[in-house]
Design a binder for these strands. Structure first.
Lengths: 130, 130, 130, 130
DNA sequence: GTGGTCTAGACCACG
DNA sequence: GTGGTCTAGACCACT
């Protein structure tokens, strides 16, 4: 399940968003799968209903899930609305963010790349990465 | 100089801290070098003076700079305040974040690694990484 | 000012979002302009602070405004991240929405086009539309 | 047949109502034509039977269809339940919505009008619009 | 002072 | 039962 860490700098709703995104990235959640209900997840994580709702809203806005009213939220992975150039722009932005957070620690570049490769390899890649 | 991004999730003062530490890690700032004055940097970055002051306080607390009264702030010998294990933990967390943001977009793993290598290479790796 | 209509089918926060977007579209709000504070607008519109905050969040997510922590929200019009093809896709989607709402009423097509032209003409177009 | 879009802001039953009225407005459905059965349409659209029933109730209440017991629902003479002024008000509201969504993207006015004309033309304007 | 987050509890529309 | 919206009131970090 999704792990909420109180000591985390990220707000709770962001941790939920990241948790779901990670499950999608790793193939644990696939296209069409139903997310746990807002109330159910709230009880399970011991947080307020609104906090989960906010996280789910964010996921909907990101286009990775879709809400079917009265039924629940469902993963909708295929979102080809972004052009390749924009994907690269997002990628570069995310990488810059990583670099500016991690390089100041004095970690050798080689280590950074290795750990990234390790994490990527641990994902059951959905399809065309084989 | 240091880049401030308004869209960044980190507060401005943290961006300044990271920016200075990045310059130290990359060898652009060396032991004994003088940091720009609080006011000067504030004007240059177009941020509030208090924000720069807070960043400089943080840097002093971290032990990477030292204040010499009436003269300014100076870089002092870089101490590894964080243990290797802590660094790796931070690194892994940051990488997980990157992965969950980028993989759902369907970007090939190879591309992610390549762009990271490109960005790291552009930093001109300092001596101690060899 | 922004008008909130209780009889409107759209939720309040959406009305605020649309109101701000419209002001930007009409050139009444320009790049760099500051939005009214969350609390100020909430009092003025006689709604809850969170409702305004939610609207402002939405606007931030849409990329039309940017939050500078501790200072307020500012309009940031130039967002060239979308390719022309995607703009057209968004346009067509919005038009389809309009059509499916309005044509069932039996309004002559000519009238629809005329009213659209009228509304567009009433906007002080920012720049390249001259 | 009728198109159901999950991403639409309108609930499904409203989309069905609008879809049927659109077919009537465009002349695809004429006075006396039989509507598909509740169950049949529900299966075809892959939605809940209650949803279609609700839409059909709405259409009956609007007076655009009539139920003949044991036979089904039939289109009846289109009455202008809404005054012209009300129609125009709805039209203007919908257009304002379109404008505030699309103009901030920086799309030339001419393009907007052209795409609208294209979509309207593809509907094959019925007789009474001449 | 600013926005951002969280809780608690309520009501609504949809299916 | 589902998610969506709104209110009320609280606390926090940043400037």
């Amino acid at each position: 399940m999704i792990q909420i860490t109180t000591g985390d700098s990220r707000p709770i709703f962001k941790q939920i968003v990241d948790g779901v995104m990670l499950k999608i990235a790793s193939g644990e959640l696939n296209d069409g799968d139903k997310l746990p209900s807002v109330r159910g997840l709230a009880i399970q994580l011991m947080v307020n209903t609104n906090t989960v709702a906010k996280a789910y809203n964010e996921l909907t806005a990101l286009g990775v899930v879709e809400s079917k009213k009265g039924l629940g939220l469902f993963v909708c992975a295929p979102k080809g609305v972004l052009s390749e150039a924009e994907k690269l722009a997002k990628l570069d932005e995310a990488i810059t963010h990583l670099v500016s957070e991690v390089v100041p620690l004095g970690i050798p570049f080689q280590t950074i790349i290795e750990r990234l490769q390790t994490q990527l390899a641990s994902l059951k890649q959905p399809c065309k990465q084989d």
